[in-house]
Design a protein around this nucleic acid. Structure first.
Lengths: 196, 196
DNA sequence: TGGGTCTGCGTACAATGGTACATACTTTGT
DNA sequence: ACAAAGTATGTACCATTGTACGCAGACCCA
C-alpha cells in the first residue's frame, strides 16, 4: 500500500492562485469555497479536499505571496552600495519597475485586515516586516529602516486609493533621501552600522 | 397630518455607533443587520427601518468617523508655528496624546478595504486625505505634506499590527524632522509656501 | 486479478445572510 | 375622540455559506 500520487498535481496550486485572484478582486469576505472553485475551474469538492477548512486555504494562499515578494524587492536593495543606490532602489520599489502592482497592494491590504483577526496571518505579516527590516538595516540605521518601511507602506496605500493619480517620482525620491540621511538616534548602542 | 417624530430619537445614532463597534471588533464582513442590532440592543426591524440597505448603513457609519477625527487631529497642527511645533504635533498624532486609538486605526483600515470596492467610501477616504493635506500644506511644502501623510499612515498601520511593541518616540520624531526640513522639489511652482 | 488505500468529487444539511412585508404602536390635526 | 400618516417591529422567504459524508476511480503490492 504505497501512497498514491494526485492525478493532477497542479490542482492544489491552481486553487491557491484562484484564491488570491478572488481575494484581490472581490476581497477576503468573498473568498468562499464555491467562489474559489469556480475561479479555479474545479469542482467544489476539490477545494474542500485539498483544504480541510477555509481558514487554512486562505492562510496558505497568503503564504505563497512571500515567494513572489522576496526576489523582486530584496535583490535590488542588497546590491545597493551608495546612498544614491539605496534611494533609487526604494523609489523603484515604491512606484517604479520593482514596485508591486495595484493588485498586489490590494492583496497586502486584505492580508493586513485578515491578520487583525487571524493570529497565523498576523505572524506572517510580522515575518514579512522583519524580513524587510533586516534587508534595510544592511544599509540603514535601525530608526531609518523603520521609517523607510513605514513610509513605503504609506505610499503603497496611497497608490491603492488613488489609482488614477500616480505618485510624483521626485517627491518620493526627496522623501527617501531625507530619511536615508536621517541622523542616527544614538540611543540604541546595539545597532551601530549606518553603511554596509 | 403632520410628520410624526421618532419615538426614540437616539436610536439611529445608537445603531451607527453599534455598527462602528462591530466593524472595529469583528471586521466589516461581520457587520450584518442582525449583529449590529444585537450590539445596539434594538430589534432587527429597527435597523432595516432606519437604513434601507446594508451598504447605506455602513457608509453612513463611516461618515460619522470624520466628525471625531477633525478636531483631535487638525487643531494642534494648525496652531503649530515653528518647525519644532509641527514635529511635536506630528509625533503626538502618531503615537502620543492626540493619536488615534488602536480601535480607530482598525476602523480606518477596514474603511480602506471597504473603499476598494465601494466608490462612496473611496470618495470619503479621499476627502479625509485631502483634508489632512490641506492642513499640512499650511506649514509644509506639497511634497513634504504628502510624505508626512504617507508616513503617518504607515506608522499607524505598524501600530495596528504590533500592538504590543509601541513605536519608539524619538525614532518617530527624527523621521518627521527629516521630512519637515526636506528640500522643496522646486518643480511645482504653484505651491510655494514652506512656512506659514 | 483482487483487495486495500488514497485521491477526487457530488450532494445534503444546518446555519446565517439580506430583504420584503404585514402588523402594531405613536403622534397629531381636526 | 377619531382617523390618517409615520414610526417601529416580528416573521417569513430565498439565497448562500461551511462542512460532513458517501461513493467512485486510480494506484499499488501480492
Amino acid at each position: 500500500m504505497r501512497k498514491g500520487r494526485p492525478n493532477d498535481p497542479e490542482r492544489r496550486t491552481r486553487i491557491l492562485r484562484a484564491a488570491l485572484e478572488v481575494i484581490a478582486s472581490e476581497g477576503v469576505h468573498a473568498a468562499s469555497y464555491r467562489r474559489i472553485a469556480v475561479q479555479a475551474g474545479v469542482p467544489l469538492g476539490s477545494t474542500t479536499y485539498y483544504f480541510a477548512d477555509l481558514e487554512t486555504l486562505i492562510v496558505t494562499a497568503f503564504e505563497t505571496l512571500r515567494d513572489g515578494l522576496e526576489p523582486r524587492y530584496a535583490a535590488p536593495m542588497r546590491d545597493a552600495r551608495t546612498d544614491s543606490d539605496i534611494v533609487d532602489a526604494l523609489v523603484a520599489a515604491t512606484c517604479g519597475s520593482t514596485a508591486p502592482t495595484l493588485e498586489d497592494i490590494r492583496l497586502y491590504e486584505e492580508m493586513h485586515l485578515y491578520g487583525a483577526r487571524s493570529p497565523r496571518v498576523a505572524d506572517l505579516l510580522r515575518e514579512f516586516q522583519q524580513e524587510s527590516l533586516v534587508i534595510l538595516r544592511c544599509s540603514l540605521s535601525d530608526g531609518a529602516a523603520r521609517a523607510v518601511d513605514a513610509l513605503m507602506w504609506g505610499w503603497w496605500s496611497y497608490r491603492a486609493l488613488n489609482d488614477d493619480d500616480p505618485l510624483d517620482t521626485s517627491t518620493v525620491r526627496d522623501a527617501y533621501r531625507a530619511l536615508v540621511s536621517m541622523a542616527t538616534t544614538a540611543r540604541d548602542p546595539l545597532n551601530g552600522p549606518r553603511r554596509a
